[in-house]
Each structure stands twice: as structure tokens, then as C-alpha cells.
Amino acid sequence: MKKNIILIGFMGVGKGTTARAFTKKYGTYIIDTDDLIESKEKKEVKKIFAKKGEAYFRAQEQETANWIEKCVTGTFISCGGGFYKVDNLKKLGTVVLLDASFEWIHNRLKTAKNSENKLAKRPLFSQEKKAKKLYEEREQAYKKLADVVIDVENLTLDEQLEQIAKKCKL
């Protein structure tokens, strides 16, 4: 894989799960943009938001995108839900959207084995109306930016991986 695969989608859609499964199956390197920022800041995303605010966090996302553009190739990159706003996203690689309805994502988080952790990591889901509004604001932007759209609702994880590999010509 020479070009990066950039995985976008709403929080909780399964980007991290898909990235980990993809690397296991195809032997690629993976990175997670939120993990990179947490490592640099030595704080969890929710604490960065709480202490320094969203504007600061978005600036960190842009800095991360700039680094990826300059230094990273042949990597599967799982992005935070708001990472799509970076101004050089299309230069980073093939943009793949994991697409699902808000209801499906919310149900996925509520019924996961470690649902308490998954929901705690995403405090927005404690305010369902706000989360749904954010989903609706982002939905069209995600689709507009995507080179490839994978509807994950009716696919197994293996089927998702196969579609990504096929559509990204791996």
C-alpha cells in the first residue's frame, strides 16, 4: 500500500475497530489521530476539550494532518469524528467514509460489551439530542469529502475490510 487510507465517520461508527482489524488482516501500519494528539498532549481528548477548548483541539488536529501529509505513507489512518475539517484532508490519502445512521451508531455504543467505557469516552452521547444534531450537521460533509463510502450497517467486519481493500485497489 503506497497511499494512505484515511478513515472518517461519526464517533462510534467503528473506525478504530475497523482499523485494528484491517492491520491484522492486511499487515498495514495504522495510526489513530486522536491517539497521536493524546500522546503529544499527555491528556485524553475529553480533558483537552475541557481544559483548552475545542478550538485548541482542532488546531492540534490540523497540526497532525500537516505531519501526516509530510511524513506518512502506506498507512491506514483512523480519524477522530471532527478530523474531516482539516484543510488538507484530501492530500493525506484515499478518504474512506464508514457510514451508518445515527440510530445504528447509538445502538452500537449502548449494546457494546464495554458500553460504559465507549459512552464515557464520548460524553456527547449523554446528550442524545445534541449528538444527533451534530451527526446531522456532519453527515453531508463526510459524504462530500469521501472518495469511498462503506455502508457498515448491514456488513460484517470482514465484509467491510474486503470492500475497503477492493475499492482502494489494494
Rank of each mutant, 00 (worst) to 15 (best):
G9D: 09
F22E: 01
F49D: 04
I31P: 03
S39C: 12
D35C: 11
A50F: 04
A65P: 07
W67D: 12
V45E: 12
D32R: 06
G14C: 06
V45R: 08
F22I: 09
R58D: 12
K40H: 11
V13G: 03
F22T: 03
G53A: 02
T28D: 12
M11W: 05
K15V: 06
R20W: 00
V45Y: 09
N66G: 12
G53Y: 12
K15T: 00
F10E: 00
I30P: 10
G14Y: 01
K46G: 10
K42P: 00
F22N: 03
K51P: 00
I30A: 10
A21L: 01
E69F: 13
G16H: 01
G9W: 13
K40I: 15
T33H: 01
D32E: 11
N66S: 14
A65D: 07
D32G: 04
A55R: 15
T28Q: 11
Q60N: 08
K24G: 02
E38C: 09
T17L: 06
I31R: 03
T33M: 02
D34A: 14
K15Y: 02
K70A: 13
G16S: 15
K40E: 15
L7C: 08
N66K: 11
E63D: 04
Q60E: 11
I6T: 08
Y56Q: 00
G53H: 02
K51E: 15
K40G: 12
F57A: 06
R20T: 14
T64H: 04
F22Y: 14
I6D: 01
I30M: 13
Y26V: 08
I6N: 03
K25N: 03
K47T: 14
Q60A: 10
Q60R: 14
K52V: 05
T28I: 13
E69A: 13
K40F: 13
K15M: 04
K24S: 06
F57S: 02
V13M: 01
Y29P: 05
F10Y: 08
Q60Y: 07
R58T: 11
R58H: 12
F57M: 06
K42W: 00
